[in-house]
Design a binder for these strands. Structure first.
Lengths: 209, 209
DNA sequence: ATAACGTTGTGATAAAATTCACGAGAATAT
DNA sequence: ATATTCTCGTGAATTTTATCACAACGTTAT
């Protein structure tokens, strides 16, 4: 299979969101690259290139058939079975993320949460049970969880990451503002909300000069 | 001034975080590019190039002086005065973001929150007062707020964005999973947590084949 | 002194991402 | 029928981003 870069994967995921929304909101069955471009914020050439990478083909007359394109993207992106996710850290942000994810998402679910605070364990929030972090390794193995959301203070992040990897986790979405050291076969995505906001602030000032 | 791209700005922000942490945790006054690279996840050549773009110079003998480099980055990135931020939407995620931002950040503060739910207005959370959204325009103008965090359902996002722009907002951090249509002089950064997680999930599976 | 070392700053190069631009082909209008 | 008007798919060109690699230079060891 030809190489699909990180950037392309990011956009395919966005395209799918747009396509699904579009098919719900209108009764169009087809969409042109320039329309999808507008909805997704990409350029039309980019849309065509990205979709080309999937091996999917549209028709010059009608554009892309929404339903089958969604399926093609899904076949490429989605796991074979429902994604079970662990979250570590049940502070305000952690709880909000559990709520946010489990409220809307269909193909994935946060099934286990871990924290050190005794008051936060052995509860259930939006279908997600919470455990003490000392049970983390066994629960992750038991449920065969592949991905985790890390939502704890930076100071503990590397230590917990090492344990996650020992538990068999392959991908981490890291909200802690610190670079994690992991082996090459583990995928880490850093989501530093403060850093992202600082960027917004910078370009907000920069743009209107 | 030479052009500093979005990617470079992103990394400079991360470098600064690493530098500050590093100067707190150790009593080193200097750092080499390869050390900062390790801490930040960039390559050492990239670190040197990015810092070169600032016009800052290190010494081949001692590397970069941490304090003055932090200042240089700040002079480049930071607003002249403290950044006042508005947030729209006080759901679980919105509240968690207010808490998260205002707890740790020094150079910026979410000072006003807006919601349509009458139960959520006229309260104070972490120094941030909440108002009904119909007061948004006047409050944003009154406080001279330049940037906003958008944390509301997709369905309302474009409409509220238009109002934000009318109010004088120049930058938006958008948590709603939808592409916003804005004029060229407005900067929007989309932060679609579900999309980002889907990417993690994809590469977690992909990497360990 | 001076040789050996390790780093910075930066031209040059390579790689990756994006855009251009056009042939091919289907639908529609005349 | 034929011309016109769209689009898609994609090779080629361009732009952006990242890496390489090395001269210059201060430090340290001898």
């Amino acid at each position: 299979m030809s190489k699909i870069s990180k950037k392309i994967v990011e956009r395919l995921i966005i395209y799918r969101r747009c396509l699904i929304r579009s098919s719900v909101n209108s009764n169009n069955t087809h969409i042109f690259s320039h329309q999808l471009a507008k909805k997704s914020g990409a350029s039309s050439a980019q849309v065509r290139r990205d979709i080309m990478g999937l091996g999917y083909s549209g028709s010059p007359a009608y554009g892309y058939e929404i339903k089958s394109l969604v399926d093609s993207i899904g076949k490429f992106i989605d796991p074979v079975k429902r994604e079970k996710i662990a979250i570590i850290g049940l502070g305000n942000l952690g709880k909000a993320i559990v709520d946010y994810f489990n409220k809307q998402s269909l193909e994935m679910e946060i099934v286990a949460a871990f924290d050190t605070n005794p008051e936060k364990v052995n509860r259930v929030l939006m279908g997600c049970k919470s455990y003490h972090i000392k049970e983390m390794k066994s629960i992750i193995k038991e449920y065969d969880i592949q991905t985790a959301i890390l939502c704890i203070p930076s100071i503990n992040a590397q230590e917990v990451t090492d344990e996650l990897i020992e538990s068999g986790i392959k991908g981490i979405l890291n909200y802690a503002p610190i670079n994690l050291n992991v082996p090459l076969n583990i995928y880490v995505e850093n989501l530093d909300m403060i850093a992202i906001f600082e960027k917004v602030s910078y370009f907000a000032r920069k743009n209107n000069k």
